[in-house]
């Protein structure tokens, strides 16, 4: 079947089959390999993308379910040359080793911080628990999220000041 997907603010037309998951289409048909695929069972979170702003394990979502929705992948967050705040926080805190889980963590962190801009350590560590980091960077992942929250709050504060001026 031929379907249209709205991904990272671009429209893609893909010839695919109903039994394909969003993760497969992203990786295999569209070459967006930043979305990693590990367990394929919704346990590890490597394949997390945002669908209408909420994080989704794309290995569990049929491509048909993604039609007509706003899909955001790691490719939309920031580039290697110009990182987003959350990505930079992961670099600064070195919240990863092999990096296979990292895009998934970052997608969850983006959505989490959008909803909860001032998380506690406990909230952050619970929120990041839908992803698996086998290298065991756990504390640094949580700290990266908390640091990103701090920086985003500062940025917001300074924007606020500017708008007041």
């Amino acid at each position: 079947m031929k379907i249209r997907l709205r991904i990272n603010a671009h429209t893609h037309e893909v010839e695919t089959r109903p039994n394909q998951t969003l993760a497969q289409v992203l990786r295999e048909d569209l070459g967006m390999t930043g979305t990693m695929m590990s367990c394929g069972e919704g346990e590890c979170g490597s394949c997390t993308v945002l669908v209408d702003g909420t994080p989704v394990t794309s290995c569990l979502m049929l491509v048909g379910q993604a039609m007509g929705r706003d899909i955001r992948t790691i490719e939309s967050v920031g580039t290697a040359a110009a990182l987003d705040v959350v990505q930079q926080a992961f670099v600064d805190e070195q919240g990863f080793q092999c990096g296979a889980c990292t895009p998934g963590f970052i997608m969850v962190a983006k959505a989490f911080l959008a909803e909860n801009p001032t998380p506690t350590e406990h909230e952050a560590s619970q929120a990041m628990s839908g992803n698996i980091c086998r290298c065991g960077a756990h504390p640094y992942i949580v700290r990266a999220v908390l640091n990103a929250a701090g920086i985003l709050a500062q940025q917001k504060g300074s924007e606020h000041e500017q708008s007041e001026l």
Partner: peptide
């Protein structure tokens, strides 16, 4: 239940 990003589906 399950994970943050699966509870959304």
């Amino acid at each position: 239940m399950c994970t943050v990003q699966t509870r959304t589906i």
